[in-house]
Design a protein around this nucleic acid. Structure first.
Lengths: 341, 341
DNA sequence: GTCAACCTTGATAACGTTATCATTTTAGGG
DNA sequence: CCCTAAAATGATAACGTTATCAAGGTTGAC
């Protein structure tokens, strides 16, 4: 009765061996089969309604044509474009994509690694939840990291040059005459916060300016974007009450930048006339604010595509792989929240 | 050499049959095995480092514990929370999730359906790209639709009661004294646009008001959120030049609402003092605008979880399934863009 | 015409699990 | 203590594909 038709049914139908049928229907490109037999097979397959059993093939070849993505949280507006870039490239190359959210929780992340091993994904693209993430549990699963941090310099990584990006923003503000530039960073959990502070101080030093007091704000790091935004609002409500105000704020991501903007708007501080605000990432929300948020844009789709391509290369070249570190530049995206001092 | 350890190795190690070992290690809950043997097996498994080969199991059982989600586009801010809800519930139930973007393109959607059949997903959750989507190509794959449209009343669906939601918004505006309320909808592709217009006209009629001229704006539908936003801006730049202005705008989604808000801000139209704006969906960007956008919120995570649960129920009960249509209410989320007329 | 080299095709053995049925062991009642 | 029923375990056959190697055909040069 309703048994699924197999390669054997096709073989019977066309009077050829199942080996030949397999070569025609599921063979790689290195086929060696006469045009005439190919047609016979195809016709028979059509007739009996053959459909390849992917599970059997996966089992036999011990590969799934599936890769996994491990990120913090798909609802964080930073990630969807990145994911999309990965998906698009992967789909072009015949892979499907399973996406896992670790909610910045290293334990969940480890669970996910376990899962990847269990489920035999062909590879993984990982945005590390944590500077100390242990990748040994991934065993033989090939993986690529989405970061440019020095902390992961032994691994294959694809990331934006955030340092250069931050520098561009600061230089640009300086060029516009800003001398009281403030820095807004997320809390200690965010692995990037310390280098940002370092770079910030160094920038002031380089320019021969002394760093005014009270020019750095750290707000608590939160799992969700909404919570982060609320935290940042609180910090900025306080911060933007001081006198004199800074003339510009560099926020280490757009969510913090948008919080700053909203508070400034509420307080009647004119942006950009009285206060310039520059964010980082280039998320959609920055486009719809009033004024639109000037930002250091990371091309997340491109990062995703490159990570995907790199992973595929790595999967296809199991030995002799050389660690790769790909770095993409950031670009200053001038919208409306930055002006002369 | 480095061969993977199998159930047979475990059996040898502990001197039991592979059947028994399998019962212990991979058996369902209906186990019937003595506690003592269970321990023997577990210990042996540990010793030889057994790890279940999921591919073999999938093949044998002809199921993948994987479900697919088909949506328009993960970069559309409406979707990530929905996806998250699905993922969370599915993960709790031992399923993993593959997410596919059709970019509102019915052809790509059909490709995805093909893929689902091929790849033997256990089920699918689908946000239809199109009112005429053909689901026959899904063959025996059980699926749930994310919609509440009457067009899909023969299928299992989970969706928000958008009509009721829109009505709530209009009533509320009316209650605040608004009599010149405008409607902003996306273009013809959006299957929802016609019922919105109908409901809009009916509302005016019900209230015994005559519908003023020039109170409906349609802007071209675009694939990406950014493009939609730009389109909507164009339409509203024009629309908000008229005299007299409406006192309120109901936008059929937040992106359109935010475009309206941004244009109003640019034109120096005070929101909400001169113009109230209400959107629909409750996306993150509406939280960070100035003022924050009042909106008819859809609980997308909840929709996702319910869809996931319903799909699981359907998968587990192959026969005797009764078509289910789940409808969740929308809530008015008052933020800052709505006030008295 | 022969022989080698190559191109096609065929036969068949895995792959590691689950499921079925048979067999052995245990428990319980008389 | 035996017999029966139930519980626990064992033996083994799939599942449908891919991969390996062997066998058969064809071609072309000498």
């Amino acid at each position: 009765m309703g048994r699924r038709t197999t390669i054997i049914d096709v073989a019977k139908e066309c009077g050829l061996s199942q080996a030949t049928v397999a070569r025609v229907l599921n063979g790689q490109k290195d086929i060696q089969v006469k045009e005439k037999t190919r047609e016979r097979v195809l016709k028979a397959a059509q007739k009996v309604g053959y459909r390849r059993n992917a599970l059997a093939a996966n089992f036999r070849r011990q590969q799934t044509n599936t890769i996994a993505i491990s990120i913090a949280d798909i609802t964080n507006p930073f990630f969807p474009e990145l994911i999309k870039g990965i998906q698009d490239k992967m789909r072009d190359c015949g892979y499907s994509v399973i996406q896992l959210n670790n909610e910045w929780n290293p334990d969940i992340e480890q669970e996910h690694f376990q899962y990847m091993v269990q489920t035999c994904v062909d590879g993984a693209i990982i945005s590390p939840s944590h500077p100390m993430t242990n990748f040994d549990t991934l065993e033989t699963v090939p993986f690529i990291l989405l970061t440019n941090s020095d902390l992961f310099s032994n691994y294959d990584t694809v990331g934006n040059d955030s340092k250069a990006g931050m520098r561009i923003a600061l230089e640009h503000l300086y060029g516009l005459g800003h001398r009281r530039i403030a820095l807004l960073v997320g809390g200690s959990m965010s692995s990037g916060s310390s280098w940002r502070r370092d770079l910030f101080c160094e920038f002031y030093r380089e320019k021969g300016m002394s760093l005014p007091a009270n020019m750095q704000v750290a707000c608590d790091f939160s799992v969700s974007s909404t919570a982060s935004f609320v935290q940042a609002r609180k910090s900025m409500e306080n911060f933007l009450s001081q006198n004199p105000l800074p003339t510009a704020v560099f926020a280490s991501n757009d969510i913090l930048g948008l919080a700053t903007l909203q508070v400034a708007n509420e307080k009647g501080i004119q942006v950009p006339e009285q206060l310039s605000i520059v964010g980082m990432d280039g998320i959609f929300s920055g486009e719809v604010s009033s004024p639109p948020l000037t930002t250091v844009k990371k091309n997340r789709a491109e990062i995703g595509r490159m990570a995907a391509q790199t992973l595929i290369d790595k999967i296809k070249k199991p030995q002799g792989w050389q660690t790769k570190r790909l770095v993409l530049p950031c670009k200053l995206l001038e919208r409306g929240s930055m002006g002369p001092a």
